[in-house]
Design a protein around this nucleic acid. Structure first.
Lengths: 232, 232
DNA sequence: CAGGCTTTGTGAAAACTTGCACGAGCCTCC
DNA sequence: GGAGGCTCGTGCAAGTTTTCACAAAGCCTG
C-alpha cells in the first residue's frame, strides 16, 4: 500500500461525535478553560474517556501526556477536520411550515451555514420573505447553487415531493442533502444524505417506553427481578 | 436461564430501522400492495436484503418462504413492537421559534403523538396559542404530565435552558426525552434521551464535502486514483 | 406428487465499534 | 536530575452490527 491514501480515514462513529466535542470545547473556551483532559471532556460529552482519546487520536497526536489537550488548538483541529474553516452555503427546498422555521431560525447562519436561498413550487409562496430571505421559484435553484457555490441542500418539502426535490438538487450540483421528509431518498453514488425524521425519533422513544411498561407489568406479575435496563 | 426473560431483546440498530420499514410498508399497503419480499423492502429502504430479514426475524418468523411477507401483518407486528397501538402524549418545553413550529406542524398528532401541552418560562409567551394549544406556565408541567399520563417530553428551549428543562421533565415523571437543544443532557438511569441537532448534521455533511474537495484536489495533484468514496 | 423455482431464516465470517489496560511521555517537586 | 504522579496514545480483547451463503420450506407446474 502506498505511504498514505487520500488521507487517513476517520471512522463514521468518530465523525458523528466530533461536532459534539467541538461544541463542548468551544463552550469551555468561552468560559476560560484552556486545557482539558480526556476524562473531563468525556464527562461533558457523556462518553467513555478512552473513546475520546481514540477519537481525537484520529486527528493526530495533539494531546500532552500528563497534561491533557489544549482546548484552543483542539477546536482549531476539529474545525479543520470538519471543514468549518469557511462557510458552507445551503439552499432550502420547500417554504412551508418547516422551511420557514428553518430559514427563520438563526441557527444556520450563526453556525457557518448561511442560507443562499429558499425555493418553492407554489406561486403563493414565491416572493414572500422568510428569515430575511426571499422565496424564489423552483427554476432558480440551479442559478442559486451556481452563484453561491452551494453544496448542501435541505429538503423541507412534504414527503411526496422529497424525491423530486432531491433529484433537482442533485441535478443542480448539490452533493450533500439534509432530508427532513419521511422518505428514504435514492441518490447517485457520491452524494451524501442525512435524514432527520421526527416520527422515527418518537417511535424509537415509544419503543423504549413500551418496553419499560412491559417490564413493569412483568415485574408485578413475576415479583422481583433486579435489572433496570436504562439508556441514560 | 428461565424460558424467556422480560422478552427477547431487539438490537438498537434494528429498532432504529423498524420505523423506516413501517413507513414504507404502510405506504405500500395504501397503494394496494399486500405482499413483499425482503428484497423489495430492502430496495425501498435503501439497505441490504439480508439485513431486512434479520431485522424482521427479531419480531418472529412472520414471512413465508418462497413468497415473502404479508404487508398488513408485518405492519401490525411492527406497530405492536414499537408500542404504537395507542397514542403517546407529548409535552413540549419551550414555545420559541422551534416549539411553535413543532406544535404548529401537524405531524405530531397525525402520527399518534398528540401534544398534551406546551410550557414556557416567559410570561410573554404564556397564554398565546400555537397549533391550537395554549402555552402554559412552567409550573403547570407537573399537572400536564399527570393529567394526560405523558411519558415523552420534547425540549425546544435554548441550549442554556435545556438541562434545567430536562430536570423538570424528569421530576415531573417523564421517562423519554427528545432533545432539540445543542447540549448533552445528563439524566438519571432509566430515562431515554434522543438528540436531534441540526448543527451536528450539517457538520457531518460538511465533513464529507470537505473530504470530497480534498480528494478532488489530491486527485488533480497525484493524477489518477480509481476509488470514488461515496455514501449514497 | 416430484422437480424446479423462489425466498425465508439463520449460522458463521467479516467489519466495525467500544472499552480495557498499560507502556510512554511530560511535568513537578524535592 | 531522579522519583513520583498524571494523562495520552494504542494494542488487544470484547461486543455489536453487517454481510454472506446456504439449507429449509413453501409454491407452482406438469
Amino acid at each position: 500500500m502506498p505511504p498514505h491514501r487520500t488521507k487517513r480515514r476517520i471512522p463514521d462513529a468518530t465523525v458523528s461525535r466530533l461536532p459534539i466535542y467541538l461544541q463542548i470545547l468551544t463552550a469551555q473556551l468561552e468560559v476560560g478553560v484552556s486545557n482539558m483532559s480526556s476524562e473531563e471532556l468525556a464527562g461533558l460529552a457523556g462518553v467513555n474517556a478512552a473513546k475520546v482519546r481514540k477519537d481525537l487520536s484520529y486527528l493526530g497526536s495533539y494531546g500532552t501526556r500528563g497534561v491533557g489537550y489544549e482546548v484552543q488548538y483542539l477546536v482549531y483541529q476539529i474545525r479543520h477536520e470538519l471543514g468549518l474553516e469557511h462557510d458552507w452555503h445551503v439552499v432550502i427546498v420547500g417554504a412551508g411550515n418547516l422551511g420557514q422555521a428553518l430559514a427563520g431560525y438563526g441557527g444556520f447562519a450563526d453556525r457557518g451555514y448561511p442560507v443562499a436561498g429558499i425555493v418553492d413550487v407554489s406561486p403563493d409562496k414565491v416572493d414572500t420573505v422568510v428569515g430575511g430571505v426571499r422565496v424564489r421559484p423552483l427554476d432558480d435553484l440551479h442559478q442559486i447553487v451556481s452563484a453561491k457555490n452551494v453544496s448542501i441542500g435541505v429538503i423541507a418539502t412534504p414527503s411526496e415531493a422529497a424525491q423530486e426535490a432531491a433529484d433537482l438538487l442533485v441535478r443542480a450540483g448539490v452533493t450533500s442533502i439534509l432530508n427532513f421528509a419521511s422518505v428514504v431518498l435514492s441518490v447517485p453514488l457520491g452524494v451524501t444524505v442525512r435524514k432527520v425524521d421526527l416520527a422515527v425519533e418518537l417511535q424509537i422513544l415509544s419503543y423504549h417506553e413500551q418496553r419499560r411498561a412491559a417490564a413493569a407489568t412483568g415485574l408485578r406479575a413475576v415479583s422481583g427481578e433486579a435489572g433496570r435496563g436504562a439508556s441514560a
